[in-house]
């Protein structure tokens, strides 16, 4: 899978790149519109991560160009401005998703995976990890071909951990993804634990090969045995 990151902030760019490379993507980078346009003209990408606020022009025009060229790349817009306008305009122009800055890398991973999954399979897609099979669209989970009942939060947690499998998922990131944007007002994320506990119990009772490992109070990691 090949991903192009268009981002003018070097540190940020490097960070995203390192993170995505850990996920075994092929990552290319561009620092401005011009560079991005050149790269898009020459290569094909599976996904483009596009920062809207670029020094030499609006990222939205780049998106317009992409769509006019009938290029099939999935596009995720990243915007520092937490503005509804950018979001609406971007999605209207055919972007696949919108991610406001600052975001968690785990969230980015989940978004990219979701976008790619939607693009590359048509409806009939499931994720198999060991003896566990997850159907994201139908929000169903099967362990050893046996249906497992998960509540909304448990499913969202599992899905998020799966998208970041064998990677560290920090608590704030998990909380925001599952409980909503404003949950960080809750001071501590200890409440995550009770849902994790239930999820673990269910995975264990069905002898799933997925294990949720706690990482020194920082977060969790999904391990596949």
């Amino acid at each position: 899978m090949k991903i192009l990151i268009v981002e003018d902030e070097l540190q940020m760019l490097e960070n995203i790149q390192q993170n995505l490379e850990k996920e075994n993507y092929l990552v290319e980078t561009a620092h401005n519109c011009k560079e991005a346009q050149e790269k898009i003209g020459v290569y094909n990408y599976d996904c483009i991560l596009l920062d809207i606020g670029l020094p030499d022009g609006d990222g939205l025009s780049l998106l317009q160009y992409l769509k006019s060229q009938q290029l099939m790349e999935a596009v995720i817009i990243v915007s520092a401005k937490d503005s509804l306008d950018d979001k609406l305009k971007g999605l209207e122009l055919g972007a696949d998703d919108y991610l406001p800055k600052p975001f968690y890398m785990a969230e980015l991973n989940a978004r990219i995976k979701a976008v790619l999954r939607r693009r590359n399979f048509d409806g009939n897609n499931s994720i198999s990890l060991g003896n566990t099979e997850i159907f994201p669209e139908e929000r169903r989970v099967k362990i050893k071909s046996e249906e497992v009942e998960l509540n909304r939060k448990e499913f969202d947690i599992l899905m998020y951990l799966v998208a970041n499998k064998e990677r560290l998922v920090r608590k704030p990131s998990l909380a925001e993804h599952v409980w909503g944007d404003n949950i960080d007002q809750a001071d501590s994320f200890e409440f995550i634990y009770s849902q994790i506990k239930n999820l673990r119990k269910k995975l264990k009772s069905h002898q799933s090969s997925l294990k949720i490992k706690a990482v020194y109070g920082v977060g969790y990691k999904l391990m596949v045995e």
Partner: peptide, 17 residues
């Protein structure tokens, strides 16, 4: 402070992995 903080955390996260 936002970006440097986010980047620092991410780097440490990568290191932790």
């Amino acid at each position: 402070l936002q970006t440097p903080l986010a980047i620092s955390i991410n780097k440490l996260e990568l290191l932790l992995e």
